[in-house]
Design a protein around this nucleic acid. Sequence first.
DNA 1: CAGTGGTCTAGACCACTCC
DNA 2: GAGTGGTCTAGACCACTGT
Lengths: 228, 228
Amino acid sequence: MNQAIHSAIREDVLRRIRSGEWPLGSRIPDEKTLAVHYGCARGTVNRALRALAEEGVVVRRRKGGTRVRTAPVRQARLAIPIIREQVETLGGEYAHEVLTRRIAPPPKAARAILGSPEKALYLETVHRGDGAPFAFERRWINVDAIPEAANRRFERMSSNEWLVKTVPLSGGDLTFRAVNAVGRVAKALAAAEGAALFALERTTRLEEVVITTVQIYYREGYRMQSHL
Amino acid sequence: MNQAIHSAIREDVLRRIRSGEWPLGSRIPDEKTLAVHYGCARGTVNRALRALAEEGVVVRRRKGGTRVRTAPVRQARLAIPIIREQVETLGGEYAHEVLTRRIAPPPKAARAILGSPEKALYLETVHRGDGAPFAFERRWINVDAIPEAANRRFERMSSNEWLVKTVPLSGGDLTFRAVNAVGRVAKALAAAEGAALFALERTTRLEEVVITTVQIYYREGYRMQSHL
DNA sequence: CAGTGGTCTAGACCACTCC
DNA sequence: GAGTGGTCTAGACCACTGT
């Protein structure tokens, strides 16, 4: 059982919505009324309903009251792990190898994303689990924003991991797509030419400044899992 | 500016962490101290720190205090939209077509997921935007759990949308992967044989009962976007 | 204008867990 | 045992916004 009253209220409200007692789009009783009903303080009801609003279940408006969303938002939370942890979670021994590392003028696409620096640090890295390729990444790092990165070789700690520890709590965009394996990517992953690969593109920002942009290609058959 | 004090405190704490004033793994002052520092009630500080804990930025323990996570969780929120809305957001005119609809004994894999019913409703649907294929789905619906589904043809409203409205707020699992287009899937999407397709698998549950399991294959070049 | 949620307070008791 | 967060309360004032 949930000991906390606010948590129990949240679940009771959810139950009523699911049961059809409070249909999609309908207005539910106001906080004061519910507080009397549940025999608690208004603040406790407020906390429960605020949680449901954050989850996208209800919409709250002053004077307008609290309504069940007509199309409740289905949102999934994806944890974006460090690749080393992904490999280790699967029971493999992690290793990574930097295939390419150079400071160079970025190509047009990367240049635009990075904010048009003259030069940036380019890395190609393959991540392995028990020797077998797990993922291949191409990364551009904005050395104007993170000068320290220019002195790192990323041999002991991957750039992936170093950046997470050095530039914590940054925001960014994330894109998933499927691509056919070709050329160096196929080779690095030991994948058949043309195989369907799961790819992730991430651009990381700290206070609006782009730190790094990376494309990660996972081995054939990789699945990214989540729950609703 | 953020008017709310709890929100301002949350941002100030974030700023201190990012600036290095409170390094990863370090302990930050307790609620009472912070309340004095910010000149507010303890409850207000509590709300700010609780929010940061939910976001995965800090870890809180009674007596242990509040610490900055050593490896802050990077989590993305993915909104899982109804396909019709995806198409319409992209500016296309939505249409869908049910290619197959039958009640049949599910194959072994689907059967296990659905909880071993004798029969289930099978649907193959193609979703189009401005006439061009956008996504192709294969779905099994547990008619034991949702008997009403057996009477629906899903011609006006897609099964996708009908289920969202009929069985709101259900939970479930979600898997993303990349697959090569073959056979009927390639044909339905007018994709080249072997093209890399982004695929989504979803199993929906309500109170532990599996309602439906679906595989959705998106057209070539589809990207799923999110942000950190 | 008046109803509703948003926020804050000052205080209280409790549960956990580190020392 | 004692420090810290978790939760709850009763009340207050305010900011929106529907009527």
